[in-house]
Amino acid sequence: MATRAPGDLAVIPPHPPVRPSPGVHRRLLVHRLDVKASPYAYVAPFFLLFCAFGLFPLAYTAWVSLHDWTLLSDVHKFVGLDNFVALLSDDYFWNATFNTLSIGVLSTVPQLLLAIWLAHLLNRPLKAQTLFRVTLLLPNVTSVVAVVVIFSQLFGRDYGMINWMLSWFGVSPIDWNAGTATSHIAISVMIMWRWTGYNALIFLAAMQAVPRELYEAATIDGASGMTQLRKITIPMIRPTIIFVVITSTIGAMQVLAEPLLFGIYSITGGPDRQYQTLSLFIYEYFTKLDFGYASAVSWMMFIFIVVIAGINYLLTRRSRGGLS
C-alpha cells in the first residue's frame, strides 16, 4: 500500500537527457534510486520493528507450542500437536473461551451503540464543545488499575455503593464477584467505562466529514434526528464503524487486566473460574512456567481473533444501508 503513490511519480524525469555525460548519468541514477528505493527505506523501520516484535514472537510461539517446554528445564521435547489435542479436550479452556465471548459481547455491543449515540449528540453546535470532547476521553487516559480498583469497590458485596443503591429498591446484596453473569456484567461495565468515550471520538471525527447539506435536506423533508442518524449518519460512516468493530473485538478478546484485578490476583478468575478469560488462562499457564501449553493457547486465541474479526467484518459490510 505504501509503495503505490511514489511509483506514479517515478516515471517522469525532469528533463529528457539530451547529451548524456557520465556525471549526468550518475545523477540520473541517484535520482532514480531516490524515487524508487527511498520510500521503502522510509517504511522500513516499521517493518523491521514489526518483524522483531510481531512476526518473530508469533513464529517462535508457534514453535514453542509444538514442544513440552517448561521454563526451568533445559530439555524441550518435541511433541507435535499434542498440546493442541490436550487443549481441545480441556474443559477449562472452553470455559475461558465462553467467558471471553460473553464478556466481549456484553461489553462491545452496548459500548458501540452508546458511542454512536454520544457522537451523534456531540455532532451538533454545542457550547463548550471541546470540554465535552476532552471529558469523553478522560476515562481512557485513566490507568486501568485505578479504574478496576475503584470499580471493584463499587461492586463490593458488603460495603459497595452499587449494592447500597440497589438496596433502596429492596434488592438484597449481590455478590458480584461470585456469579458468572454478575461478574461478567461488572467486568463489562469497567471495559465500557474506559472505551466508550474513545470510540465515540472516532465516530465523531467520521461524522464531521459527512456533508452538512444532506442533513439540511433531510431536515427540510421533515426527518427526525433519529431518522437522520439511521438513514444518513450510519451509512456514511460505515468504514469507520467497521474499523471500530474490529479493533473493539480484538480488544475484547484480549481482556486481561480487568478480570485479573477484579479477582484480586486470582489467576483462575474466581474460585470456579467464572470469569477467567483466555488471556488469563494463558497467564495462568505462563506463571506455572508451562510455556508449551501456554503458547498453544496463545495460538488458538490468535486464530479465534482472526476468525471472529473476519465474521464481524463480513457482517458489518453486509449491513449496507446506502443512501437511497
Binding site: 455478590d175 461470585a178 486470582s266 483462575t268 474460585p271 470456579d272
Partner: peptide, 13 residues
C-alpha cells in the same frame, strides 16, 4: 483448596 472452599462458600457446589 482455597478455591474449593470458596466454591462452597459461594454456594456453587
Amino acid at each position: 483448596f482455597g478455591n474449593a472452599l470458596q466454591r462452597i462458600e459461594q454456594g456453587k457446589q
